[in-house]
Simulated scan of single mutants.
Amino acid sequence: MIEKEKIIIPVWRKVTMTVEEAAAYSSIGINKIREMLKIPNCPFVLYIGNKKLVKRREFENYIEGNIEL
């Protein structure tokens, strides 16, 4: 059996992140990020079926543009 190598990409190089990666990247809690992703027309959510991913650049811009979350 041939094992596939897992490709590891640093979070700051990814286009999208999981909720867990976004939490680790931003020091914002997982529950708070999930709550933010539920906001209608959230600018940084990407739906892949039922899965929600965080668009990294839009997420960074959203954080930079707000003084309170």
Rank of each mutant, 00 (worst) to 15 (best):
1 M>V: 11
1 M>W: 12
3 E>W: 13
3 E>V: 11
4 K>A: 13
4 K>G: 14
4 K>L: 09
4 K>N: 13
5 E>P: 13
5 E>Y: 15
5 E>W: 13
6 K>R: 14
6 K>W: 14
7 I>S: 15
7 I>T: 15
8 I>E: 15
8 I>W: 11
9 I>K: 07
9 I>Q: 13
9 I>G: 08
9 I>F: 12
10 P>W: 11
10 P>G: 02
10 P>Q: 12
11 V>Y: 11
11 V>Q: 13
11 V>N: 11
11 V>G: 06
12 W>P: 07
12 W>L: 07
12 W>Q: 11
14 K>S: 13
14 K>D: 14
14 K>F: 09
14 K>M: 12
14 K>W: 09
14 K>R: 14
14 K>G: 10
15 V>Q: 14
16 T>V: 14
16 T>C: 08
16 T>M: 07
16 T>Y: 05
16 T>D: 10
17 M>I: 02
17 M>F: 12
17 M>D: 12
17 M>V: 10
17 M>T: 09
17 M>Y: 11
18 T>R: 05
19 V>L: 04
20 E>P: 03
22 A>F: 07
22 A>W: 08
22 A>P: 10
22 A>Y: 10
22 A>V: 08
23 A>S: 15
23 A>L: 00
24 A>W: 06
25 Y>N: 06
26 S>I: 03
28 I>Q: 01
28 I>F: 07
29 G>F: 04
29 G>M: 02
29 G>W: 03
30 I>Q: 04
30 I>A: 02
31 N>S: 14
31 N>M: 07
31 N>T: 12
31 N>E: 15
32 K>I: 11
32 K>H: 10
32 K>V: 12
32 K>Y: 03
33 I>D: 06
33 I>H: 01
34 R>S: 13
34 R>F: 05
34 R>V: 03
35 E>P: 04
36 M>K: 03
36 M>S: 03
36 M>L: 15
37 L>W: 04
37 L>C: 10
37 L>A: 02
37 L>E: 10
37 L>M: 09
38 K>T: 13
38 K>A: 08
38 K>W: 09
38 K>G: 07
39 I>Y: 15
39 I>D: 09
39 I>P: 08
40 P>M: 06
41 N>W: 12
41 N>V: 04
42 C>Y: 08
43 P>I: 07
44 F>K: 03
44 F>P: 02
45 V>W: 06
45 V>N: 02
46 L>P: 05
46 L>R: 00
46 L>N: 06
47 Y>R: 11
47 Y>Q: 11
47 Y>D: 08
48 I>M: 09
48 I>V: 14
48 I>C: 09
49 G>H: 04
49 G>K: 01
49 G>M: 04
50 N>S: 09
51 K>V: 12
51 K>C: 13
52 K>V: 00
52 K>D: 10
53 L>F: 03
53 L>Y: 07
53 L>N: 01
54 V>I: 14
55 K>V: 12
55 K>T: 04
55 K>D: 13
55 K>I: 15
56 R>E: 10
56 R>F: 04
56 R>W: 05
57 R>V: 05
57 R>D: 06
58 E>P: 09
58 E>V: 00
58 E>Q: 07
58 E>G: 02
59 F>Q: 00
60 E>W: 02
60 E>L: 01
60 E>M: 01
61 N>D: 09
62 Y>R: 04
63 I>P: 00
64 E>H: 01
65 G>Q: 06
66 N>R: 08
67 I>W: 02
69 L>K: 01
69 L>M: 05
